[in-house]
Amino acid sequence: MADVIHIVLPAWQFAALLLAPLAVLAAAAAGLRRLVRRRSMQNGDKDWSVPPLADAAGATIFHRWDIRCKLATLIVYSFLVASIGHVIPAIAAVAVSVLALVLARSSPARALMRLLAITGFLAMFLVVMPLSAPAHPGDTVLVIDGVDWMGFNLRGLYKALAITAKAAAIALLMEPLLTTAPLPVTLHGLTKLGAPDMAGQMVLLSHRYLHVFRHEAERMASGMRVRGFRKRTDIETLRAVANFLGMLFVRSFERTERVFDAMRARGYRGRFPAPVDLKMRPADLVLVAAWLAAGAALVGYDRICG
């Protein structure tokens, strides 16, 4: 295909181009994990309480924003960001999300941990798409000297970068969405927007008791280590792990029954009381218009880039 621009690189330069960004990404992820682990060790005794999603400070516009407007607006804005197809508008969406983090006074460490959770998935795009994108007229393809069948398409790289930037923008936006209001209030807002009330109750109870069951598993694992248990590749280890999982299931089921009986004793009849009285103000609608205008501007800029 004569219109395709081929740039021949030595094998070591091609390998460096392909592996260096992944190595930097892996090093950053490992450093962040080490930092989080070091902070948890400095705290001394483990905190067995359920970590709250909402931050203590509530003086920002995101904290004062009506939860129904905030949910609907940021979800619609996320769909607008997902429709972007070019790199520059996607990077602009990341900048908007970072600005939202600053305005909401969200924790940078928690935002980075949220990005870390999707790092492996996004790294796959950065590797697979440039190597698998078919060459079109006008594309620039990097090839290894003597290996013409394997090419690194820069158009595929730009597409992968756009997908990565969009995913990062949406993931960062979830931090001010979820941490600027208590979880019961957020789920109450979803219910008011038409989500099933039982689904909100299940999410709330799951968030509470997943941490409880995790702490229970950690206590059981500590007890096994104190009694001399060490993981090995033998039948005894498999039997011990199977007993561990069975006991964890039994204890979780028994705790669930006790919790449900306690809820019924306190008057639970299939519905939780409303945590707050929601009141919409004119300022909430102004914020809705501002965010949707920003999303429309990004989509319009993306269409101009095309």
Rank of each mutant, 00 (worst) to 15 (best):
V8D: 01
A171N: 06
A240S: 14
T256H: 15
M247Y: 08
F62T: 05
V299P: 08
G138R: 00
D145E: 12
L71W: 04
A294D: 02
Y77D: 13
A262H: 02
V96T: 04
V87A: 12
E236A: 14
L22W: 02
M247Q: 09
L210K: 05
P89T: 06
R110N: 13
M280S: 11
R303F: 05
F260K: 12
D55R: 14
V276G: 00
M124G: 04
G44N: 05
D139G: 00
A11C: 05
I75G: 14
L115D: 08
L19Q: 05
R271I: 07
L71C: 06
R281A: 14
W48E: 05
A297G: 06
V141T: 01
R230N: 13
A56D: 14
P21C: 03
K46H: 09
P275Y: 13
E254Y: 10
V76F: 07
L178A: 10
M124N: 03
V226K: 03
S49Y: 03
R34Y: 12
V102S: 05
I75K: 02
A93P: 15
V276E: 10
E218R: 08
P52M: 01
I61H: 11
P51G: 05
A29C: 04
G120N: 10
V259K: 14
A135C: 00
A20D: 05
A217C: 08
F213D: 10
G120F: 14
D277T: 09
